[in-house]
Design a binder for these strands. Structure first.
Lengths: 345, 345
DNA sequence: ATGAAAGCGCTAACAT
DNA sequence: ATGTTAGCGCTTTCAT
């Protein structure tokens, strides 16, 4: 008798999938539903409440894909982690993971979602263009320059909403957030020397520019102070590191009295190897790390290290990206490192 | 004279943004371009090459939003990390971050992107429905049940493509991947007892069901062997943990000779505190951890612990989710824990 | 305050 | 092998 479409409470209400379905039930137009649900414009309070009630009842959510397509905004920030040198390393590296965690906090707080993409540049030439051009993200944060400095530079000219975690080079074009690695390296070397070391070594890969800068800073101080310093290269995947460090230690037995480790992870492994050889830290050998990871205060002896403020870094990345999203061309942000003195030097 | 739209090589080629722009230039229809670019159907090789060339020349990428809207698939897996108990903890917790890293590897390899969402259930009642209903993801992996067991159960009935990392309960409805925590707890207690401990303590929060299960397993063994065991609760954020552990240690001085720590992170902190009090491990006090994080082999003494196979867990999560995406209703996957004997017990 | 209508850019029948 | 057409579900002028 009555119209069969307008019954509000059938046992199995036909699923409300679209804003149009809902509009039909509410007896209004799709436009009104859209407005009501986005809370945006001036919809009659009664109408809005009615629409909201129906939406709740049916568990309806507007399709984001359609919305984003129409509005040409995604509300998603891409986070790319390029694994340049060593495929196995960075994604499970504590430092990057911690940074990512903080980044997730910051961006979530600002209402953005995160699209995580692990990239292996060697296997995928134009990972960055593809990510940016995918139409799925409003902006991108690149975590770690790896060996992709040039590629990032290329993109930076034509694409504003990108911020990179990494090292700052004089005159670079992309916006970067990172610790002053060179200064950090200086701090480390100064501390080692002040503690009495005279024959230094830098333990770690010197290829990545962050690490290169740390080494350069240490070297500058060492040379100024008339102290020797050499590089003892390691790779980054954990399994190898132990052996490599062991080998280095055998080779330099007695020739070295101070080690500046490129990262705390390396320092911790080194500490373990030294212990196994009964070399006393800091009496026989002093050691300074970099990062100040949570473990570093728990080692034996507790590690003297150069602290990177990861939380501040994440906040900086998020802040700058949002400003760039708004059209501003921001400067890079270089954070000061802090020497944390514990017992290893 | 000639049509002014068809010039192939003007100096500043008007930006090719859509498949239709490209079609116009190539002198074909949008449909053909779509087919050519998706490499899918049988397009004339010449035509395809021409289209690909133009696309490359103009740096054109099809808009993903539009494509996904049309195809009703996103190629994105949502990864939700509920922070139930302690807002500051889990996202920077090494264990979860490592799992996330492996998950990123697995899903990327299978051609999916990851949408990361950090959720604080206390502040957002229906986080899970919202995530699923957002239309932005094809399926969801929930990393950690936290205190959201019931909410997850509710959703599981109506939503197939969901897999959860966590503990398996008899008769639960959602598909879970995780370590057999109870068995892990047994292993730990057995080891402590075999090493000579007779007065045990479980160090850690017993609220989260994973931890509760570990404790229950240990308790079962202890009772069977006529050995005492008590719980020493801690919270999860790192700053507090140290103090809490210190307090516990003061209180139980001499009353305890074996500690089963809920996680390696707790165990490492405990080891440090014990060292500060000159309590010898394992002579005076034995300790067993849980997880087998990378640090655990580097502590002094190296930590005896119950290993969770994180990589296998990540693979399991990805595998099961893909099968569910294909419509299959999969069983849960319970992974066996492994006792790793080092020097702390 | 609401409705009508025109797309956002792409894909997949259905034709040819 | 390619063109034509009709949407995917939403938002936003432009009317009223």
């Amino acid at each position: 008798m009555a119209d069969s479409d307008t019954q509000p409470s059938v046992d199995k209400p036909n699923r409300v999938r679209t804003i149009t379905d809902l509009a039909k039930i509410a007896g209004v137009s799709p436009g009104t539903v859209s407005r009501a649900l986005s809370g945006n414009s001036l919809v009659n309070t009664k109408t809005r409440e009615k629409i909201e009630a129906i939406a709740r009842e049916h568990g309806f959510r507007p399709n984001q894909m359609a919305s984003k397509l129409r509005r040409q905004k995604t509300g998603v920030i891409g986070v790319a982690i390029p694994l340049g040198h060593d495929v196995r390393q960075q994604i499970s590296d504590t430092f990057f993971m911690t940074l990512l965690g903080h980044l997730a906090d910051e961006l979530t707080e600002r209402g953005f979602d995160i699209m995580l993409r692990r990239v292996i540049p060697a296997q995928d030439e134009d990972w960055l263009d593809r990510f940016i051009g995918s139409g799925m993200i409003d902006g991108v944060i690149v975590v770690g320059q790896s060996d992709q400095f040039d590629r990032i530079e290329d993109v930076a000219d034509g694409y504003l909403p990108m911020v990179v975690w990494g090292n700052h080079q004089e005159g670079q074009r992309h916006c970067v957030v990172g610790t002053n690695n060179r200064l950090g390296g200086k701090l480390a070397a100064e501390k080692l020397i002040a503690a009495g070391a005279r024959r230094l070594a830098f333990l770690g890969d010197t290829q990545p520019i962050e690490f290169a800068a740390r080494f350069a800073g240490a070297k500058e101080v060492a040379e100024k102070m008339g102290v020797s310093i050499r590089a003892l290269p390691t790779h980054l995947s954990r399994d190898q590191t132990s052996e490599e460090i062991a080998e280095h230690l055998s080779n330099i037995e007695g020739e070295i009295d101070g080690i500046f480790a490129a990262t705390d992870t390396i320092a911790v492994t080194c500490l373990k190897e030294l212990r196994d050889r009964n070399i006393n830290v800091p009496a026989q050998l002093k050691i300074v790390g970099f990062d100040d990871l949570p473990i570093s205060s728990q080692t034996v002896p507790p590690l003297t290290t150069v602290r990177q403020d990861i939380a501040a870094g994440a906040k900086g990345l998020a802040d700058l990206l949002l400003r760039r999203l708004a059209g501003e061309d921001t400067e890079s942000l270089v954070l000061p490192p802090h020497l944390i003195v514990r017992d290893s030097a």
